Simulated scan of single mutants.
Amino acid sequence: MNQGLRRTSYRAVINWLTKYNPNADASNLEKIKGLLEAFYHLCEVEDVERAWKIIDCRLNTPTQEYLIEQLRTWGYYE
């Protein structure tokens, strides 16, 4: 993969994780969009270890589920 493209992807990950701020009344999916976008960009650069850390993080929800489980609970994950 092109080094410039890798750098751009990692910058996108940082931006999604640090700058994305959904509205308080946003849907569940919108609230975790930053995590999903960061996961996507890490997969694009084949950084499986870091991508897994995102998809396997606990969310601040009443059930404290991991992201991968919470997506199923909300009906977004197949």
Rank of each mutant, 00 (worst) to 15 (best):
M1L: 08
M1Q: 00
M1F: 00
N2S: 10
N2W: 04
Q3K: 11
Q3W: 02
G4Q: 15
G4P: 02
G4V: 11
G4D: 15
L5G: 00
L5T: 00
R6C: 07
R6I: 13
R6T: 12
R7T: 15
R7A: 15
T8P: 00
S9N: 15
S9F: 09
A12I: 11
A12H: 08
A12R: 11
A12T: 02
I14N: 08
N15I: 09
W16A: 15
T18H: 11
T18W: 06
T18D: 10
K19G: 05
K19T: 14
Y20D: 12
Y20M: 10
P22F: 05
P22R: 15
P22A: 08
P22G: 14
P22Y: 13
N23G: 06
N23M: 04
N23F: 05
A24P: 01
D25W: 00
D25C: 01
D25E: 08
A26W: 03
S27Y: 01
S27I: 06
N28Q: 09
L29C: 02
E30A: 09
E30S: 13
E30W: 00
I32A: 03
I32K: 09
I32T: 06
K33G: 04
K33P: 02
G34V: 05
G34F: 03
L35N: 07
L35G: 03
L35F: 06
L35M: 04
L35Q: 07
L35P: 01
L36N: 12
L36K: 07
L36C: 11
L36W: 05
L36D: 08
E37V: 09
A38G: 06
A38N: 03
F39Y: 15
Y40P: 00
Y40D: 01
H41R: 12
H41M: 02
E46S: 04
E46W: 00
E46M: 01
D47A: 03
V48Q: 10
V48H: 06
V48G: 00
R50L: 05
R50W: 05
A51H: 04
A51M: 01
W52M: 14
W52D: 14
K53Q: 13
K53M: 12
I54S: 03
I55P: 00
I55Y: 03
D56N: 14
C57V: 08
R58A: 08
R58T: 10
L59I: 00
N60F: 03
N60P: 00
N60E: 12
T61L: 02
T61P: 01
P62E: 13
T63H: 06
T63S: 12
T63K: 12
T63Q: 13
Q64D: 11
Q64P: 00
E65K: 13
Y66V: 12
Y66K: 15
L67G: 03
L67D: 11
I68G: 05
I68F: 13
E69S: 15
E69D: 15
Q70L: 05
Q70I: 06
L71Q: 06
R72V: 14
T73Q: 12
G75E: 13
G75N: 14
Y76T: 08
E78Y: 10
E78A: 14
